[in-house]
Amino acid sequence: MKTSLPWKLWARQVMAILRIELAKNFKRKRAIPVYVLAFLPFLLWQTHSLVHIRGWRTCSGSEDLMVYAGVFQVFVLRLAIFFSAVAIFMNLFRGKIVEKTLHYYFLAPVRREVLVVGKYLSGVAMMVIVFGAGTALSYLTAVNHLKLTASRAVVPAAMADLPVYVGVTALACLGYGAVFLVTGLLFRNPIVPAVAILSWESIIVFLPAVLKKFSVIFYLESLCPVKVPFHGPGLLFTITAEPTPAYLSVPGLILLTLALLALAALRIRKMEISYGTE
């Protein structure tokens, strides 16, 4: 009887979920820390350039792009996006179980798989919009500031990296989003897995190349336009594997995401409402 799947219907439903969820994601009070994390680098770069303009401090600009790359890889990717993804994506299902409101979603005439996709996309859309804007603004500010310094010659080349930074940001949201959506669905108390993932993504730099392929940060870092030589407590940090070329790491990351989403869909099909004691 059913020869073709009702893709059109599903697309409409996903859109409906997006409409409802997206507004909620943006307006929630818990989203404020996410905004702060996303736009903090922008504010700081603004201040950096202001300090220079006012002449309180001089800056040759030669280090700026390197500092930007360091801040981006260590702070934006590993901390800001990571923790925001934890907050937003774990809330999508696990939070609803804790609040005992998940059944309201399950009582709607929507396939559970569609529900997963809709909710995931709503989280991703919010993260990409917020962090994409944050990254673009901060990068533009940093590069703009270079025009006032001795290093103004590098500006055109640097501008070419803007889409790369924004792209990497978007991929990070995609990847971490899927990771934490699944963690939130699979575990009753996801804090231990969350800490485990945090540690895993942090120690991954020390591990052999084969294992690196199972982390999100690995793909992201090989995509970053400026490689940062880590200094400080770990000379060990310099053992980087051959960075994977973009034509492999982008599909790699997307495949990882799709696999995780499929896992989430499988899990939620079987899910029963039983709000135990948390």
Binding site: I20, E99, K100, T101, H103, Y104, L107, A108, R112, V114
Partner: peptide
Amino acid sequence: PERLFKVVGYCTQFDSFPRGKTGYEFLYSS
């Protein structure tokens, strides 16, 4: 669920509601 909940309405025993919604918003968004 796609077909079921076009014809079924369920008032559960759980006494919990989506956070921060008014009665109107609760019904409307559903």
